[in-house]
């Protein structure tokens, strides 16, 4: 059983999630916006592991995800913060298997990641400071939160259960 879970985790972590990040399949998109895959992957891992390990993985995951984007702003600060918060939460709440609570945490996590990218963009580009609430940023943020909230309960719960069985 353990071996099967390991294989599943390796498959999802190494093949499926990177493939989703790169290919961004249309059937998993809302208005052209894909789910926040790093959050979906990091959430169960952080809940199940200690802060130091979760933070290390968050940094590595951030480096990995940043390599698929135009390198102006980074995922690393937000993922690092989330990994620390979630791992602390996981240490104090051992029984987090509720479908909806996972979804809710993913929603807040995605919103945090999006706000972090938004703020970094505002700091980086002068012209975005003229008007802080751009239709584009709000559109991306809301769409990403909704689609991640729909997808995360399935993938993240599944991953969390697999981690626990290991």
């Amino acid at each position: 059983m353990n071996r099967n879970n390991n294989e599943l985790l390796i498959f999802i972590s190494i093949i499926f999630l990177p493939a989703c990040i790169i290919a961004s399949p249309d059937w998993l998109n809302i208005n052209g916006i894909s789910p926040c895959w790093p959050v979906i992957w990091l959430l169960p891992f952080s809940l199940k592991n200690r802060p130091l390990r979760a933070a290390l993985v968050a940094i590595l995951l951030g480096i990995f995800v940043d390599s698929f984007t135009i390198g102006d702003v980074s995922y690393i600060p937000s993922l690092l913060t989330l990994s620390l918060i979630w791992s602390q939460y996981g240490l104090h709440n051992k029984k987090i298997e509720l479908f909806l609570s996972i979804g809710l945490m993913a929603i807040f996590g995605t919103a945090f990641v999006c706000v972090s990218i938004w703020v970094q963009k505002i700091i980086l580009y002068d012209f975005l400071r003229n008007n802080w609430f751009h239709s584009w940023s709000l559109y991306v943020l809301i769409s990403k939160v909704i689609v991640t909230g729909l997808v995360a309960p399935f993938f993240s719960s599944w991953l969390l259960l697999s981690y626990k069985k290991n």
Binding site: I33, W118, K121, K144
Partner: peptide, 9 residues
């Protein structure tokens, strides 16, 4: 081969 024309990037 891959397209992201609406997201953050």
């Amino acid at each position: 081969i891959s397209r992201s024309s609406k997201s953050w990037w």
